[in-house]
Design a protein around this nucleic acid. Structure first.
Length: 272
DNA sequence: AACGAGACCTGGCAGC
DNA sequence: TGCTGCCAGGTCTCGT
């Protein structure tokens, strides 16, 4: 589900739809984070899907007439199914294509979003405030060090701030800090350039590892039964409070930072 | 400008 | 079995 690697895996899994023409759009429940635009069925009718891109955790589906923005929120999932596959309770939105395939959005908590962005999605107010992509060349130690200057917030909270860098969710924030041996409560401004280098490297490596693992479950992810089949990653710290650190054997701690569960090893991770 | 808290939702689980 | 409270992979909005 929706950390950056799963969003990217989802985007790649939708590739069979490229070049196909929209036959129908079905809105079963428009009450997502923002209302699903009522005009989508008429706007998208007979339109050909030109490209599928990703920015942060948004999937951008581009058509000649504009761009559809999809966000999976906390519990969203997109499946490719046969159009006759019966919808379930939380299947809120379908795009039916001329091949008979349907792109179906399921989201029990409805924190996700389906939005219309016109032909300049990078100017959309939700998109144009976003920070750099974590896997791109713009995200490096120098940039990050500059962004963190003067910020007293905990580094864990900072790396989850999408205005600085996008795509680092709650799981991979804890995992990346463990790999970089940085305590999650460290004030962001205290990180040296060398600390930033280790953290940037750790974030990139953590996301790439997850992407590689998620990619291997692609078949299950889009299985006919809608089974998510997401990989069972071996986490170093996330969800392992009370258990032994895999490096030093000390007990993994659980605290709350920015109202989110945070896991770390107090022996391996130090405050600077 | 920066930061913290509240808000949006449903489902699963532990504890009583 | 049923109820209650808490927790969950996100992030915008508002008040200080």
């Amino acid at each position: 589900m929706p950390e950056l690697p799963e969003v990217e895996v989802t985007r790649r899994g939708l590739a069979p739809l490229l070049g196909q023409t929209v036959k129908d759009v079905i809105i079963r429940n428009a009450k997502m984070r923002w209302p699903i635009p009522e005009h989508l069925p008429s706007t998208l009718a007979h339109q050909q899907l030109k490209s599928l891109e990703r920015r942060a955790k948004y999937i951008l589906a581009k058509f000649d007439v504009g761009t559809l923005l999809l966000h999976l929120g906390m519990s969203g999932r997109i499946c490719l199914l046969d159009r006759n596959y019966p919808p379930e309770k939380h299947d809120h939105f379908d795009i039916v294509f001329d091949s008979g395939q349907v792109m179906r959005l399921r989201d029990p908590r409805r924190f996700g979003a389906v939005l219309w962005a016109g032909n300049a999605p990078e100017m959309h107010p939700l998109i144009n405030v976003l920070g750099v992509e974590p896997l791109g060349n713009d995200f490096d130690a120098k940039y990050f060090n500059k962004q963190l200057a003067g910020r007293s917030m905990a580094i864990k909270v900072a790396i989850m701030d999408s205005h600085l860098v996008v795509g680092v969710g709650n799981i991979y924030a804890s995992e990346s800090l463990f790999r970089a041996r940085i305590h999650p409560q460290t004030p962001a401004k205290n990180l040296s350039l060398a600390d930033c280098q280790r953290l940037v490297d750790a974030i990139k490596q953590t996301l790439q590892d997850a992407l590689a693992a998620g990619g291997s479950s692609l078949r299950d992810f889009f299985g006919a039964d809608g089974n998510p089949g997401y990989f069972q990653q071996e986490y170093f710290v996330y969800g392992r409070a009370g258990g032994p650190c895999k490096v030093c054997g000390n007990v993994i701690q659980n605290i709350r930072l920015g109202q989110r569960s945070t896991f770390y090893c107090k022996h391996c991770q130090k405050i600077s």
